[in-house]
Each structure stands twice: as C-alpha cells, then as structure tokens.
Design a protein around this nucleic acid. Structure first.
Lengths: 339, 339
DNA sequence: CTGAAAGCGCTTACAG
DNA sequence: CTGAAAGCGCTTACAG
C-alpha cells in the first residue's frame, strides 16, 4: 500500500519535483502547458500530498483548532457544526479541545495552539482581558474569538472576533418583561469568570430595572452555571420571593426555571413569566415555548470560518463582527395590565 | 522563536539523538541513569517533539478522527464530549468530520481516515453491512463504531464497536405503553439508510404489538428525520387517527410530537401518552418530563475512547460492547385502566 | 520558467 | 546499552 509521492509525479510528468511542488501550491511562474501536464498526472495517479511532510517544512500544521470554554452547550455544538460545514471543503482539519474551567482560558488555548502547531485558533466563549494579550502575541496565526466578551481596553489588531452585543440584547429581553407590566423581575445569572457574558447580561438587567424605576434587590438574583439543573435550583430559591417574572441568561437555565415553577405547583406564564437567552431550537418546541433572545449560531459559525480562511490569505486584516440578535416571542410571557 | 529540537536535547544531555528518541518513545534498553538525565534536560528546555516529523517517519498521524453520520444531535455531541474527556490527556488530537447523508457512509469515512492519515477512526451512527467491509480492510488502524447498527453477517474481527440492543430497548419502551393499557399505539420512525437504528426500533415496535395481540396499521406509522420539526409534523398526521399513545424513536422527535399534541388543543399525557428514545438531559426538564429509553452516552464515549487507546497497544484485540439502556419514567404516560 | 540539492525533525535499522 | 547515518516527503532558496 505504498502511496505515490511527489517524486513519482515528477518522474511520470517528466519534470523536477520543485515544479510539481509549485503546481501543488498554486505558485505562478509555471508554464501553463507544464502545469496542465503535472495536474493531469496528479489526477491519474490519484496523488494526495503528505501533510506531515509539508508541515514539517513549514513548521506548522494545516489544522484549525476550536477551543471551547465552559459547558459544551447546544449553542456551541451548533456553532461548531456551522464552522465545520464551511471549512470542510478546504484542506483543513478541525481539532477540538474542551476547557471546562473559566480560568487561564487564553493561556491554555495558546498552549494548545503551540503544542498542536495549529494554523488557526478559534476560541469559543470566555472573556478576553488586556492581560491575556501577551499570550496571543506568542502566536503568529489567525486567532478568532467567538461569543467571547472582549474588554474595551484590548488591542483589536491582534485578533478577530464574532460576537453579539450582550448588553443591548439582554436589555431588550428584560424590557419585554417590563413592558408587559412586570414590576418584580428576577435574574438567573452565573458567576463563572470575570468580564464574561454573564456580567454583561446582568448589568443590562440592572440598568433596565433602573431605567424603568423598578427596584432591584439581591433577593431577586440567583446564580447558576448555565445548566438546566442550576436553573431549576436557582428558580426554587427565587420562588420564595414575590417575583412575577424572571430573566435567565441562558436558555438551558430558563428551561430549568420553567420546570421548577411547574414542580412548585405554579404555572408559566400564568404565575411567572420567563425570558431566556440563546434561542436554542429546543426552546421553540417547549410547551409553553420559551420567549428568548435568539443568537444567530449559523451566522456566527460561518462568519468565524470565513474570517479564519480569509486571514490565511491576508493575515493582517482583522475583522470584528457584531451580529444582531432577535427576540423570539414565545409563550412564556404574560401581560400584566393595570395594577 | 526557534523551538528546541531533538538535537538540542541530545547535545545538552551529552548523548546521541537516537537515545533521546528512545527515551521519548519509552523504549526499553536505555540505562536508567541516561534516561533520567535526558528526561531532566527535556523538562528544563521545555521540549515538545515535533509531531509532523514523527508522523512523516511513521507515515501516519496521531490524530483520532470522529466521523459523525446524520444529524449532529445532542446525543452525539455528548458522546463526543465524553470521548474527548478521556483522550485529551494523551497525546492525541481529535479531528471531527460531519457526514449528513446516510449513503456511502463507510466509504467516505475510510477516505477521510486515509486522507488525514489518522491513527484511529471512530464512526458514530449509521449502519455497517458486509459490503462495507472491503473499505475497512484498506485501513490498518483501530476502527470503532459507536451507536451503529451492525449487520449480523459482518466480520467482527475487523473492528470494534460500542452499541446498545436497539430491538430489546425499544421493545421495552413500547411494552411500557402497552402495559399501561394502551391499545392504539403510533410510531414515529425514520427512513434514513438501511439496516439502521430506525429499522431495529421499528421492528421492535411491530413485534411488541404482535406479541400483545394488538393490531398494527400503516396509518399508525409516520416518518421523520430525527429532528423536532419532523416529529411535530409526524404527530400532526397521527392525530388524525384514534391513537392514544405514540413511541418515537428519538427524543427530539418525541419532543416535537408532544408539542404537536398541545398545539392541537389536546394534552400529554391526558389524551396522548408519549415515549421517546435517547434519554437526553433536556427530556427530564420538559414539562411534562418525557418518558424515554435512556442511552448511556457518557459510558458510550468513555468505552469508545478506551477501546481506541487499548488498540493502539494491542491492535488485534477487538471489543464489542453492548451497553444497557434504562427506562426513564417521566410524566408522559397515562395509565388507561379497564376502558 | 525549471531542476538539483539542502534541510525540516524525527525514527530506525545497523554496527558496535 | 548507545551513536552515526539514512531517509520519510515535502518546500525553498539558488543557480541557471
């Protein structure tokens, strides 16, 4: 099962190996007729260049790493799928790595990239602070953050990003509850990490309450870890208060919260209204269907993939895309007129 | 940013490169004192061997490919996560590939393995027929099927597998409905592929009905594609019949079915009882929680990972593990006593 | 526009 | 138990 190599092609085409290499890499300066002849032989002999050899010379692989921070949620798996869809036509392999904790994320991601000698690094989730930038500078490959909270003081020339405006989107979600007449609105958030999506979403919640002259209180805020069970537990706590609505910063926690309401013998939305965040497909198939802030995961994945591929061509052009979210009006909000 | 290589280590340790290589690969026949010295230098210089060079010599990579057939369901993403958890300690990278269609699956998977020069191949889902075995024979690396339906006539010495008994598990699920007093039980299945899980689960449904002297009819069977929407649509059709219960061969379709019942102004389980298959975490957080045949995805993932790793050591020992499912008693089954 | 040759960083017989 | 040397299959100056 000896596979054919570049020398075989060179011999069969009657040229030198350098010429074959040039054709392979689409370099100019090859006579058209020569190029055609080589291409034909490659085709005939069903030749696939050996990546290990290429990589050895280039001192890097052609692998694109996806580094996933925190819970591997449905949201991330959809983004990963969208990335794969866009990239699999090309010659790149996707290498996955999960990182459960919310500490040292960038540091470990960079280690991962160096160790695997990646050609590109995609980091999903987490946050980026100025102090992390030193690690990124060690890399001279495209680095794209997806769904990451990027601190304002960061230098945007070092990497690309595809994000949403967590503050604005969450604010909108909370306002939906307020404008439906709710006065006592709880929050299910998360404490993981620093400067993360949870913080932004929580700030938006507090601001929305303030802007509408509603009282916020620590009693109305409970913490989870993005899982359904944690949303369930958080809601159980919140049910001890007089709240009539709750905003959960993830759909999974919102789903857990809904369950907790029913298990307590109450009803969604009759007793408690709920708004989630993510827009997972499952949310629409819940009964009642979940009202939620919908993130465009397909768009996020395909944008990330495009950016990586385009940076392979022009490494100095960085992109920072902020995608729009849309509010999905499900059945978990009840209007509370008058009072 | 020149990284240190094996020569640097050899020089610093005062040995030849072959000795360093032997230490690196944990080969015997190295004096303990020499080994220690080399290890110390490796540590000090923070040396990481260049995989591309290794792979070039060995003519294969150390990547393990995961080839996912059909919809990238929550179930598969959980299995992938469990695999990663077990393998990431080792020196292997996981390379993902999605294959949406249910045709030529094994052929394409083998191409994928050859092209990427994988060290191991994991195939999730789909089916394996004797006619596919020719492709597998092209590979001399561990091949492990997970959640795949393997035809009886296949030669089990060619690969390993981790599966469940789809027939038995489904039979049990259907019997739960029958023993709760249901006489008119629908099925939501799928037509994808041949000799696949859908077929096994459907056969079990038919057998269970037959064994309990219940009439099966084509009217009571609707087809989906494992998605929630398809379960929804299928249920809409089935609601035209007089059924009081339905068995869906996947949780996602079951969830869609439940939604369709409510949208039709009926109730689960008061009007229609539902049993699903998979045991996704989300199913337990539905309201009502879904009764379902639960597959052990963590166990499946960790078994798959163990098998791959053990075959790296002893390539001729193949394993065929059949995991047990458990019936999860949710709230979607209503007892219909007497009638 | 093209080819001969060096070299990327390993592994592995081979010789001792 | 150890080292010098060949060679894996490419890419890339270099020389023409």
């Amino acid at each position: 099962m000896k596979s054919v190599n570049i020398k075989d092609i060179a011999k069969a085409a009657g040229v030198g190996v350098s010429t074959v290499s040039r054709v392979l890499n689409n370099q100019p300066d090859v006579k058209d007729s020569t190029k055609e002849r080589v291409l034909k032989v490659i085709e005939e002999l069903n030749y696939v260049p050996n990546n290990s050899a290429r990589n050895l010379k280039r001192n890097k692989t052609n692998h694109i790493g996806i580094f996933i921070i925190g819970e591997y949620s449905n949201f991330f798996s959809k983004v990963v799928e969208a990335i794969e869809e866009k990239i699999s036509n090309e010659k790149h392999a996707l290498v996955l790595h999960f990182h459960k904790e919310h500490i040292k994320t960038v540091e470990v991601a960079v280690e991962f990239a160096l160790e695997k000698r990646l050609a590109g690094l995609i980091i999903l989730g987490g946050s980026l602070l100025p102090e992390d930038e030193g690690y990124i500078k060690q890399l001279d490959i495209p680095v794209v953050f997806g769904s990451t909270v990027i601190h304002e003081a960061c230098d945007r020339d070092l990497y690309s990003s595809v994000t949403i405006d967590n503050f604005k989107s969450s604010y909108e979600g909370v306002v939906k509850l307020i404008s439906s007449g709710h006065k006592s609105i709880g929050l299910i958030s998360s404490e993981d990490g620093k400067d993360n999506v949870a913080e932004r979403r929580q700030l938006a919640y507090e601001q929305a309450l303030k802007d509408h002259a509603l009282i916020s209180s620590n009693e109305l805020i409970a913490m989870g870890d993005y899982s359904m069970q944690s949303g369930y537990d958080a809601m159980k706590e919140l049910l001890k208060t007089d709240l009539t609505a709750v905003f959960a910063i993830s759909d999974l926690m919102a789903i857990g919260a809904v369950k907790a309401v029913f298990d307590a013998g109450k009803s969604v939305p009759d007793d408690i209204s709920v708004v989630g965040f993510d827009g997972l497909e499952i949310s629409k198939f819940m009964h009642p269907s979940l009202s939620t802030v919908e993130q465009p995961y397909d768009e996020m994945g395909s944008n990330i993939a495009s950016i990586v591929l385009s940076e392979f061509k022009d490494k100095d052009v960085k992109s920072h895309i902020v995608l729009e979210t849309t509010f999905y009006k499900g059945q978990t909000i009840k209007e509370r007129g008058g009072q």
